[in-house]
Write a protein that binds this DNA or RNA. Sequence first.
DNA 1: GGATTATTGTGATAAATTTCACTAAAAACC
DNA 2: GGTTTTTAGTGAAATTTATCACAATAATCC
Lengths: 210, 210
Amino acid sequence: MVNKKVVARLSSYRTALLRFHELGFVKVFSDTLAEAVGATSAQVRKDFSLFGISGNKKGGYQTDILIEKLQSLLGKDRVQPVIVVGIGNIGTALLKYRGFEDEGIRIVAGFDLDPAKINRKLKVPVLPADEMQDFIREQRVTIGIIAVPDAAAQAVCDTLVAAGIRGILNFAPIVLRAEEGVVVNNVNLQNELENVIYFVNTLAKQIKGK
Amino acid sequence: MVNKKVVARLSSYRTALLRFHELGFVKVFSDTLAEAVGATSAQVRKDFSLFGISGNKKGGYQTDILIEKLQSLLGKDRVQPVIVVGIGNIGTALLKYRGFEDEGIRIVAGFDLDPAKINRKLKVPVLPADEMQDFIREQRVTIGIIAVPDAAAQAVCDTLVAAGIRGILNFAPIVLRAEEGVVVNNVNLQNELENVIYFVNTLAKQIKGK
DNA sequence: GGATTATTGTGATAAATTTCACTAAAAACC
DNA sequence: GGTTTTTAGTGAAATTTATCACAATAATCC
């Protein structure tokens, strides 16, 4: 069954494959790829099998074809417009990050309540929050990133969904409630850091899972 | 068995509990907490049981005591000094984020190769990369955040570990190799966003897992 | 062209994680 | 003080996820 973890591995395979391709690898084997992403070769093959991707007995997978298939699965064959709500520290980092452009992701605008943050002249403009819904509808944006304080996150989520957003990457440390059919993925950087601290303090070796 | 996922839930329980405490909740029940973090009540109890945390039949858990125990488990009873390597977009966001201070995490310095980024006058100074090892040793820092380009990440990792770093939060999209006993936690924001895009494109409802 | 080798694809198995469902105990009620 | 109610704690069961191990097959070698 396709779940978050498998899709995350798909992304990792793709990233690794782009490197291999750059290095001139015409074909790649499941165990090479496995090593590159920290998985087992059987898992790589099982994952591919799940998405109907097949290779060649003895010949491995042809790098460019494989990349092509992953691109398609991950929605890279068209540019995905994304907005960022909350132009604080993380929001700003995401707005400024130029690497997304090469990856089929275009941050098209940021939104904030604070008038001091508004700037329409930027390559990626920062607009007032009250223009957000119209913008989403007009530009047909379906993906949003929430990077506002936790107290505001649910309201922002509701507004986004009402305007047509179907997928949310949420950095606020709360569980967002959204109607069926809306994808919510939570990232909590403080939790991630606390995880490291926990395992360092308990002298564990490698973090299991993820 | 204690794994990354359980510890992540521990962090989430703690965050939710702080809110409950602020709202004046003296005690809290497993299903209240479960709802707040998007888990089941049985899971909350199992998790607590794993860490030897117990409540009261019918009475739930006393909020302040529970918070105290989680604080201790997550290393909040002493301030954890952390350094950030790579003062790009994410690195800058982490350096500037003031919220860590209240959470027992102190970003004590940033490091970068680019002389233009160096600034010793800041509240959190940004120092040249070649001062990093001495700094780590002198300040006895054990946790590091890697926010450098992927090509540089492994070298930074090696340097950090050689200087005494025991835990790494890695934002570079590669698998870091580190000796046994060094904790590595990988966060890949592009993957997280691609995950949302995938599930939106395949019309899925809620992301399973995580 | 037959034998050998390397690698995929996958059913079976194992391991990990979560949920179920029930017991026990404490509190509240009458 | 007994009865009822509520919730923790936890073995057992179910589900999910990952690994194993081997058959099938294509390339290579001799």
